[in-house]
Simulated assay, not measured.
Amino acid sequence: MAALTPVKYNYENILMKPCHLALYILVAFLLISFGACSNSNQGTSKQNGADSSKHKILYHKKNFDSLMVVVEKHAESGLDVSEALLADSAFLEIFEHGEAYFEDVNKHLLQERFTHTEGGIWIYAMQNLSVSNYVQLCHSYYLLYRHGKIPEIMFETIISPNFLRKHIIGKNYQNPEVAKFLNGVLHDNHISKQLVVIVDDMLKGKFSGDEAVDS
């Protein structure tokens, strides 16, 4: 029977040298820290998204037509269609939650179911819209203007309103959607020379700041 040959272990290779052990611990610590940080950021992002969604869900949209009845009644009683509208709680409801009432306004415009007073009020009420939705709104007013349903001054007001210095179109003149819309208007042979000048100035950024010239 052959004798068993003892196995010789290289304990120097098995056992980590102090410097190697320290390096291993450092790498492990960094990996654990990175993972914790990543999870924390994801948690914060999810929480922020949840808070945002919760805020949208919590808002109880009111009947648009009922709100407008109140706003119009106050307007007829002498309230100017301007920043003074902010004193009207019904107007403020629409203004502060413009995105929620955007479809209502656009639907009334496209169906041509509105008075000139309402058309003017909606311009100011929609000043908190996103750029994309505001361009859609401007396009609806533009179509109405081109078909003679609203005066030029109303269309001029929607693209350059004198209201809380919002200037959504003017300040975002480099936005592709805004630029495309303005260029389309600029090359319309049916608009007045005054409107051509205004739109051309907007495309050049002259309405982009607080110094913007209001209509």
Results as ranks from 00 to 15, higher is better:
Asn39Gln: 13
Ser77Val: 04
Met68Glu: 14
Asn63Arg: 09
Ala36Thr: 03
Asp51Met: 08
Ser40Thr: 06
Asn39Trp: 14
Ala36Glu: 10
Asn63Leu: 00
Asp65Tyr: 01
Tyr59Ala: 09
Ser33Lys: 03
Tyr59Asp: 06
Ser40Ile: 02
Ala75Leu: 15
Thr44Cys: 02
Gly49Leu: 08
Ala75Arg: 04
Asn41Gly: 05
Gly35Glu: 10
His55Phe: 14
Gln47His: 05
Ser40Val: 06
His60Ser: 10
Ala36Lys: 13
Leu58Met: 04
Gln42Asn: 13
Lys46Glu: 12
Lys54Trp: 11
Gly49Ile: 01
Asn48Phe: 02
Val69Gln: 04
Lys73Asn: 00
Glu76Leu: 15
Val71Ser: 10
Lys73Ile: 00
Thr44Leu: 02
Leu30Ala: 14
Asp65Leu: 02
Leu31Gln: 05
Ala28Arg: 13
Met68Leu: 14
Gly78Ser: 00
Lys73Ala: 12
Glu72Gly: 10
Glu72Trp: 03
Met68Asn: 11
Gly78Tyr: 08
Ser33Gly: 09
Asn48Gly: 14
Phe34Gly: 04
Phe34Pro: 00
Asp51Ser: 04
Tyr59Trp: 04
Tyr59Arg: 11
Ala28His: 10
Gly78Cys: 04
Lys56Val: 02
Gly49Trp: 07
Gly35Asn: 06
His74Ala: 07
Glu76Val: 15
Ala36Trp: 08
Gly49Cys: 06
Ser33Met: 13
Ser77Asp: 14
Phe29Ile: 01
His55Gln: 11
Lys54Ser: 07
Ala75Tyr: 03
Glu72Ser: 13
Gly43Ala: 02
Ser45Thr: 15
Ala75Val: 14
Thr44Lys: 05
Ala36Cys: 05
Ser53Glu: 07
Ala75Gln: 07
Ala50Lys: 04
Phe29Thr: 12
Ser33His: 08
Leu58Asn: 14
Ser52His: 06
Ser40Tyr: 09
His60Met: 10
His74Tyr: 01
Val71His: 09
His74Arg: 11
Gly43Leu: 00
Glu76Gly: 06
Leu58Glu: 11
Lys56Trp: 03
Lys46Cys: 07
Val69Arg: 01
Leu67Val: 01
Lys61Asn: 04
Gly43Pro: 00
Lys46Met: 08
Thr44Pro: 03
Val69Gly: 05
Glu76Tyr: 07
Ala50Ile: 00
Val69His: 05
Gly49Ser: 15
Leu31Met: 12
Phe29Gln: 03
Glu76Cys: 00
Leu58Ala: 12
Lys62Arg: 15
Asn41Ala: 05
Gly43Thr: 01
Ser52Cys: 08
Val70His: 04
His60Asp: 11
Leu58Trp: 11
Leu31Asn: 07
Ser38Thr: 00
Ser52Glu: 09
Lys73Gln: 05
Leu31Asp: 12
Asp51Gly: 00
Gly78Ile: 11
Gly43Asn: 12
Asp51Val: 09
Gln42Tyr: 13
Ala28Leu: 14
Glu72Ala: 06
His55Met: 11
Val69Tyr: 03
Lys62Tyr: 14
Ser53Met: 11
Ala50Phe: 03
Ser52Pro: 01
Lys62Cys: 05
Gly49Gln: 10
Met68Val: 15
Asp51Tyr: 07
Ile57Tyr: 05
Leu30Tyr: 04
